[in-house]
Each structure stands twice: as C-alpha cells, then as structure tokens.
Nucleic acid binder design. Structure first.
Lengths: 239, 239
DNA sequence: CGGACCATTGATAATTGTCAAAATTCGTGG
DNA sequence: CCACGAATTTTGACAATTATCAATGGTCCG
C-alpha cells in the first residue's frame, strides 16, 4: 500500500476519526462505514451541492473550506454557513425528500468524503449506536440554530462580528509570537453577507475595532488578533 | 369506561393521531406508546419548561397554545416559537444532556401529554420505523430553522409580519362570511417580541396594512383578514 | 509594474428604536 | 348592562443605526 499518495487507510482515519458523529463507533462499525465512503475534490469556486437538488449524500469536508449560500431575488448571495475541516452537511436531508434550500461551493481547493443516502440510512438502521449518535447530533444542530436565530434578532452587530471573528480564530487561526493570526476564509463582502449586513458597515466596524487595538489587519486576507479577551467580552454582551 | 370525562382512549387518539411524527406507527407501536404517556394541565401563564433545566420529556400540546421564550439580559423577553395543538417541543434535548436554552409557558389554559426521555429513547431503539420518522422530523426542523434564519436576516419587516399573520391564520383562523377571523395568541407586544422588532414599529406597520384594506382589527385580540392574497404576496417578496 | 478587483471613507437617505403623550381596549364591579 | 380604572396600544417627535451611493484608496496577482 502506498501511503504517500491516497492511502485508503489514512483517508478513512482523516475523514472519520475527528468527526464527533462517528466517535462512538466500534471498530467494526467504523470499518463498515469506511468501506462505503466516496472521495471527491473540488477546485476553488466549484459547486459541491446545488440549491434545488435533492441531496443524495452526507458530505464531510476533509480539507479546505466551503460556503453554504442562497441567492436572493435581487441576485445577492447570503451565506448561511462556513464549513471547514471535519464539518459536514446534508445530514438534514437524508431522511425525507426535500430539496436543498441552499448551494454549497468550495472556497479553496477542497477534498471531501461522503456517504450516499442509501448507505447511511442502512447503517443507521442496522447500528443503533450510530442512530442514537445521529439523533443527538441533529438535536444539537437544532439547538445551535435556535441560538443563532436568537442572536440574529437580538445581539448588537458588534457582538455578532466579534462572535464570527472568534469562530474564525478557532478554526483558521495559528499561534504566532504576537497573537493568533487568522487566515480569513471569506472576503469582507463574504463576511458581510454572512452577517447579513452591508459591506460598508462591516468595514467601518472593523476599522473601529482595529483602532481600539483589538487586532491588526494584514492586507485583506489576514488578521492578527492582539486582544482576544476583548473579543470575548464583545461576543458575550448578553447573559 | 367513562368517555365523557378523561377517557384514555380518546386522549390517546387526540395526542397521537394528528402528530406527523407518529403517523406511520403500526397499531401495535401506537398502543405501546400510548401506554406511556403522561397528561398534564397548565393555567394561563404557568411555566411548562424552565430555561436551564435539562428537559426530561418530549411534550405535545393537546389543547391551547404556548410560547417558547428567552429573557434577555435587559429583562425583555424574546419569543422563539408559538406552539399550538399538535405541536411539540423538547425533542432536540432527548438525546444528549444539554440544558434548555429557553422557557415554555402556557398562553391560555393548556393540556399536554408527554413521554419521558427514557420511554422515548427506548421506543426509538426498539422501533426502527419511529427512529426513521424521528430523524426525518429533526431534519425538517433543521431545514425550517435554516429558512427562518435566512428570513430573519434578509426579508423586509413587512414580509415577516405577513408571514406571521398567515401562520396565525392557518392555526388560529376560523372562516366567516367576510373572511378568516384570527384569534391572536399573542398581544401586540408579544408579536413584536416574536418578530424581534419594537412594539411601536409593529403597530405602525399593522395600521398601514389595515389602511390598505388587507384586514380589519377588531379590538386587540381579533383580526379579520379581508385580502389573504395580499398577505401571500407580501410574504413572498423573494424567489 | 499595472490593471482589475476589493476595501475604505464620506455624505446622505431610509429605517427602526426610543421616549412621551394621547387614545383605545379590557375586565371588573356596581 | 354600563361605567370606570388599569393596562395596552397607537401616534407623534426625535435620535440612533444602518443602507445606499459615490469617490477614493489599497491590495492582489499576473
């Protein structure tokens, strides 16, 4: 077996090991699941799932990141999720026949692995542990969405910006001597769409936060966080 | 058996028959489930579930309606859901040990039936049909929440008001010669909290809509919808 | 280095929130 | 059934926030 290139064993590990949904699987179940995975690659900008399709699989991001978005009637896009390594999507469509309400596109070069509806449904039927895990995961997704809905309606914009920056810091940040450096997965326009505000408003708020010494922006794609504790404070603002 | 008062058979029918989650159960499964139900009554204003508790049951509203809400740090309440007959809540907490992020309180006199975590988990484990149904239901909840999140960030207020009125019309409306009459489950203040806007803003918009001849308001608790097609038009506004 | 693209800044308009006052509605008790 | 007082809602004036439009400035990548 050639483990320098695309060794199946390595890929299985990468895809499944870090995904909480599968963490409680027995060795046996794990093996069975791994056999049925499909691997794919996408170039930056490429579509992974198109709005209106009936999703045929649950897809795990193995490398790179992707955005889930909807196009509004005015032709503007609104970003709902930013997925990165070990995130997955499509699980809400596995049972039932609903069409996808949004598209998913690669933000950079992306590698994925996925299970078809049929495989996953069969596995869930035959492996009660996985079924319970899956129901817990769906429940948690519901709980997170309820929190997001509450936040969208009640938190100040500064709070929500800080929350997004903290999220990006944890997912895209690397430690440097002066602080955590975030390689942003989205442009300013993308971040504004994600937050549901105008690009200009985001620009102004970020400038204020930079003047306050919370971070330094290095070009358009990097951010060096100098005072994470200030971000935390802003992100709370409630409770 | 005394079917004038609280006949178990009747109650079982009422609680389970109309809830899609249980619609595909076999007669046998249905019976088994019905045995384990608990019935409760609540007076208007009474708490059904308190924020911070770990929910111990899935609760179905059998009569009356209830609101799910969070108290913000400023002491104002924000309504997340309005439940009416055959709606249920708590299902997202059945697997896992998370605390409820919101409270649920009766809006009027309410009757409920519920299954404990243990009963429901056992049933799901032993009845694959119910498990599949439950996963589909959780998936649909996720899909609806994603749509709500998108709507909250992108739709005009008028659109969202119209959507709420249509929802109330379908759940609380009765046909009259002149149009559908809605018995509102929430006060203006409640509706404003539900929409995440100021009471005064809602007031103004409703006045505009009434002047436009879309509905007549009869006191504070009734609405007579004269032009439902106008509501539909407003509620779309996208796609 | 240059050109296309993206981001920032400024000025202004539109929308919504806030505070205060007036009007309406509701429930109760007579 | 009516009337009254409390609670709720509506309306008005104003302030705060954000969106929009336009122009400038910076960044990225060949």
């Amino acid at each position: 077996m050639d483990c320098n290139m695309e060794c199946m064993e390595c890929l299985k590990e990468l895809c499944l090991h870090k995904v909480p949904l599968f963490s409680s699987l027995s060795r046996d179940e794990f093996e069975k699941l791994a056999e049925q995975m499909t691997f794919r690659r996408y170039k930056a900008g490429e579509m992974i799932l198109a709005q209106g399709e009936i999703p045929q699989a649950i897809t795990i991001i193995r490398k790179g990141s992707a955005k889930a978005f909807k196009i509004t009637p005015e032709g503007q896009e609104k970003i709902l999720y930013v997925f990165s390594r070990n995130d997955y999507f499509g699980e809400q469509y596995l049972f039932g026949e609903q069409k996808a309400a949004y598209s998913v596109a690669a933000l950079q070069s992306v590698k994925t692995c996925s299970f078809t509806r049929e495989h996953f449904r069969e596995l869930v039927r035959t492996h009660p542990t996985l079924a319970v895990e899956f129901m817990e995961e769906l429940g948690n997704r519901v709980i997170r969405l309820e929190a997001a809905l509450h936040s969208a309606g009640n938190d100040k914009i500064e709070t929500r910006i800080a929350a997004v920056l903290l999220d990006f810091q944890s997912r895209y940040g690397t430690q440097t001597p002066r602080g955590k450096e975030i390689i942003l997965p989205l442009s300013r326009e993308g971040m504004a769409n994600y937050l549901g505000i105008a690009r200009e408003t985001l620009s102004r708020r970020l400038s204020q936060m930079e003047e306050a010494g919370i971070f330094e922006s290095h070009g358009n794609k990097k951010l060096l966080v100098l005072r994470p504790e200030e971000l935390e404070k802003l992100a709370q603002s409630e409770e």
